[in-house]
Amino acid sequence: MSAHEETQHAYDDHHHDHDDLGIHATFGGYMTGFVLAVVLTIIPFWVVIGHVFDKSSTAAVVILGLAAVQIVVHMIYFLHMNTKSEGGWNMLALVFTIVLVVITLSGSIWIMYHLNNNMMPLMDPSNLP
């Protein structure tokens, strides 16, 4: 066996087919992801336009939760991330993404809360000139 054949055989032993890893990049898989993404986009619009919740903070929490779910849908159906592929490195990328999303969402809520309190003083008639 030549050196090239040994190298190719070693490559073939370590190279996995996507189907072995549970990744199915099929039309049906992409359509499932697309339908989920569209539904997860329409629901927040309905929540805001229909004034579904009395408190805006409840609506914000629901919308941010749906946004987080949509990120996971995109990662699974379009980026094909799971625990088996790439020797677990995709799982590390998933954890890193979740940490970034939590920091971004909680930071956004914190900033919006403080902007609302600091930029919109109470409308007290005695304070008006």
Rank of each mutant, 00 (worst) to 15 (best):
V52Q: 04
F53G: 00
F53M: 03
K55G: 03
S56W: 09
S56A: 15
T58S: 03
A60L: 12
A60V: 11
A60Q: 02
A60W: 03
V61Q: 02
V62Y: 04
V62M: 05
V62D: 00
I63E: 00
L64P: 01
L64K: 03
L64N: 10
G65Y: 08
G65V: 07
L66W: 02
L66A: 02
A67L: 13
A67S: 14
V69K: 12
V69A: 14
V69C: 14
Q70R: 12
Q70W: 06
Q70N: 15
Q70V: 03
I71N: 02
V73I: 14
M75K: 11
I76T: 06
H80F: 13
N82S: 09
K84P: 02
K84W: 08
K84S: 13
K84A: 15
K84G: 06
K84L: 12
S85R: 09
E86A: 14
E86K: 12
W89V: 12
N90L: 09
M91R: 02
M91L: 15
M91P: 00
L92K: 13
A93P: 02
A93W: 05
F96L: 15
T97E: 06
I98K: 03
I98A: 07
V99W: 06
V101E: 06
V101S: 11
V101Q: 10
I103H: 04
I103K: 01
I103R: 02
T104A: 15
T104G: 15
S106Y: 05
S106D: 07
G107Y: 03
S108C: 09
I109F: 04
W110N: 05
W110P: 02
I111E: 11
I111F: 07
I111Q: 08
M112C: 13
M112Y: 14
M112K: 11
H114Y: 15
H114P: 03
H114I: 08
L115D: 13
N116G: 11
N116K: 12
N116E: 11
M119V: 15
P121Y: 10
L122E: 14
